[in-house]
């Protein structure tokens, strides 16, 4: 007669050594299964002397319970070991480089333009567009820049010829022609901005381009004053720089405004002079002024009844300031290594 105690001890040892759940199931089958050790013990009972039968049955059952308990215990500990192993994550290095995400980009000029468009539309400004190939009349004459004005010299302006057209054409030198086009088309009062491409005939280098982006602003209303202009410009600068910016207004000469100003902003990059502000702590940012009465007349408005202010913002320059771009030629160069950065 096999001693159940011995069987239990042996089985327990095997259970403790079982490497995984499959091994436990095999032991379970072998010991407590249909044809297992416990079953054969029970089968052998009828052949025992009657006084031993009860004890043998009891022992077999105790063996079964003990083995099952041991298996259960071992299984639980194997489960937690698996969890533990998963948690230990041997060899994991989170600093390995992840796969690169390819992405597209919006041009930085588009991004800044949009930001400004959103700012201005929230203040009731329309966004207008105008032709890049423009009539001399709109680019100059109607903007109070008469024929003999030095600004009209060919050194600044790309004059154009178009087959079959006798019109005096040029590539607009500023977004200002849209001032008059807007006055002709819209009912005052109105507020508008005009982002767009402009052209100057000049030699290019890191800080000069023959093609760049500007944004014109125009407000036409009754009783518009320099005070309103200052207020609007400060709001604009708060929108751009996201903080209060000290400004100063000084006389500036632009034929289509009177009085005309240069608006300087206190350099947001330094307190005592840096390369951006050329050590002056001021950045020349916004030419602006009250719309010249002659321009109002050219746009079909009565200067006694209507007034307004206009301003010009160098979008390309603003983009360069914002991202610290040191060469303006990158903007229209189309180099992916540049575009990818925004």
């Amino acid at each position: 007669m096999t001693d159940t105690t011995t069987i239990l001890a042996e089985t327990r040892a095997r259970i403790a050594d079982a490497p995984d759940v499959e091994a436990l199931r095999a032991i379970e089958r072998e010991v407590v299964g249909k044809d297992g050790v416990v079953a054969s013990l029970l089968k052998s009972i009828p052949g025992l002397p009657p006084e031993e039968r009860k004890g043998a049955g009891q022992s077999a059952n105790e063996l079964k319970q003990a083995v099952l308990a041991a298996i259960e215990e071992r299984e639980a500990s194997l489960g937690s070991a698996a969890l533990e192993a998963e948690r230990r994550a041997d060899g994991f290095d989170g600093t390995l480089p992840p796969p690169r995400v390819e992405r597209g980009t919006l041009h930085p000029v588009t991004q800044v333009t949009r930001e400004l468009e959103d700012l201005f539309t929230s203040m009731g400004y329309m966004v207008l567009d105008g032709p890049e190939v423009e009539l001399d009349d709109y680019n100059f004459e109607k903007l109070n820049i008469p024929a003999d004005h030095p600004a009209r010299d060919t050194q600044d302006t790309f004059y154009c010829s178009s087959p079959g057209s006798s019109a005096s054409l040029l590539l607009r030198t500023h977004t200002s022609p849209v001032q008059v086009r807007a006055m002709e088309r819209l009912e005052p009062p109105f507020r508008a901005i005009v982002p767009g491409k402009v052209f100057r005939q000049e030699t290019t280098d890191a800080s000069h381009e023959h093609t760049f982006h500007q944004m014109e602003g125009l407000v036409i209303d009754r009783n518009v004053s320099v005070g309103h202009l200052i207020g609007a410009m400060k709001t604009l600068l708060r929108g751009i720089f996201k903080k209060e910016i000290e400004v100063r207004l000084r006389p500036g000469y632009f034929p289509f405004v009177e009085p005309g100003f240069e608006l300087d902003a206190r350099c947001p990059f330094c307190t005592d002079g840096c390369s951006v502000c050329k050590r002056t702590t001021w950045i020349e940012l916004l030419p602006c002024g009250l719309v010249h009465p002659n321009v109002l007349k050219a746009g079909g408005l009565d200067p006694e009844e209507w007034g307004g202010f206009a301003f010009g913002l160098g979008l390309s320059r603003l983009v360069m300031l914002r991202y610290g771009i040191d060469d303006v030629r990158h903007l229209l160069g189309g180099d992916l290594r540049f575009l990818d950065q925004f």
Binding site: G104, T105, L106, H107, V109, T110, E132, L171, K197, F199, H210, T211, H213, L331, L332, G334, L336, L339, D340
Partner: peptide, 8 residues
Amino acid sequence: FHQVLSYS
């Protein structure tokens, strides 16, 4: 896609 702005 990458947006490009070009010369005219």
